Amino acid sequence: MSEDDFFTEKQTDGVHLSLKVRRWLLRQKTQYQELVLAETTELGRLLALDGKVMLTEADEAFYHEMLVHPTLLSLDNPQLVAVIGGGDGGTVREILRHPSVQRVFWVEIDEAVLNACKELLPSVHRGAFDDPRVELVIAPGEEWLPKFRETFDAIIVDGTDPIGPALPLFEPPFFQACRQALKRDGILSLQCGTPFYFRDEVRMVWRNLKQVFEQVKLYLGFVPTYPSGLWAYAIAGNFLPNLDAADLHRRCQQRGLTNFRYYSPEVHIASFALPPFVQELLQ
């Protein structure tokens, strides 16, 4: 390996992100995608799929905390959760921090990704693969979920960007299946790209959710290695509670949730304040 090896993601035609690689851990063509794991010089271990950064050890918590906690802290007593995707285990790890959670169905299409992440990313999953509350299912989420009706307190979609093979997870038929599988006050959450570069994709996901759910809210977070750094998430349901920072602090305390790297009750509240260019995008 050359000392000057880099992993480079083409984020747009004119914007590329390059991370210097100390050593390549795995480069594999799976049944579904190109899988890369590498040790970078600056940001720890890197997971990439089809040339796109899924996480680095340095900033994965920024993403996983913001995908999970705004949803689960909005629920009084989340017990049954479905995760679609999330083969690295970071999302399941954060869900398992909530003591009321009794069972997590973790549905991932690519077993090769699961095997690689279990072995090479222990700092991310932190034993989530072996937690007795977790049931791991190898299947396409859009085929697995329609079997359920009014089952889940939360469904969290941790997929790749809303293009290519992941596109079915962002379209109305899948969202209809999510609505059917959620309890009456259940919540769906998902990432939906960057409103800075991927405006059409974010608008598409927003509009598709609005076709299916009574209430939809977009919120923002910062993930340094994702395109533009500004990342959008959405939550959807028939009833989304309006909690203030005091409510969220109380729930964190009751659940023993401490030592966040990015999330806080104040960040939670602020993340729903959308800048004008994002508001315009959704009109």
Rank of each mutant, 00 (worst) to 15 (best):
E111P: 00
P162C: 12
F129T: 04
Q180W: 09
I155D: 07
V53T: 06
L49P: 00
L26F: 02
G164H: 07
E201Y: 03
D5Y: 05
E3M: 12
L26R: 12
R126T: 11
T8A: 02
F260D: 10
K29P: 00
D13V: 01
V134P: 10
S228A: 12
R251G: 09
E280G: 01
R133K: 13
Y32N: 03
G159I: 01
H98I: 10
E150K: 15
E34Y: 10
L136D: 01
L230T: 11
D76T: 07
R207P: 00
S2C: 08
Q176E: 13
L19V: 10
G14L: 12
D110F: 11
L167M: 08
Q33N: 06
D5R: 11
V202G: 02
R261T: 12
E94H: 15
A112V: 13
Q28R: 15
F6Q: 14
A232G: 01
K10Y: 03
R93M: 04
Y63H: 01
F213W: 10
L220Q: 06
C192M: 14
L209Q: 13
S189L: 05
V157W: 05
M1I: 13
G90N: 07
L188G: 10
T258K: 15
L120V: 05
A177H: 13
A270I: 07
F105K: 04
F213P: 10
R203A: 15
N242Y: 13
S100Y: 14
D59W: 03
T40M: 05
P132I: 14
Y262R: 13
E42S: 09
N115P: 00
Q215A: 06
A48M: 08
V278N: 02
V205I: 05
D130P: 00
P99I: 06
D185C: 12
G85R: 00
P99F: 00
F213K: 03
K217I: 10
A273P: 12
Y219M: 04
M204Y: 02
Y262V: 07
D244I: 00
K147F: 14
E111I: 04
N242L: 14
M204E: 12
G87V: 07
P78H: 06
L281V: 08
G89L: 07
Q254T: 07
S271F: 01
Y197K: 08
L43V: 12
F105Q: 13
D153R: 04
K183E: 01
V101C: 12
D59A: 09
P132W: 13
T40C: 10
P172Q: 01
L75P: 09
V212L: 01
L218D: 09
D4A: 15
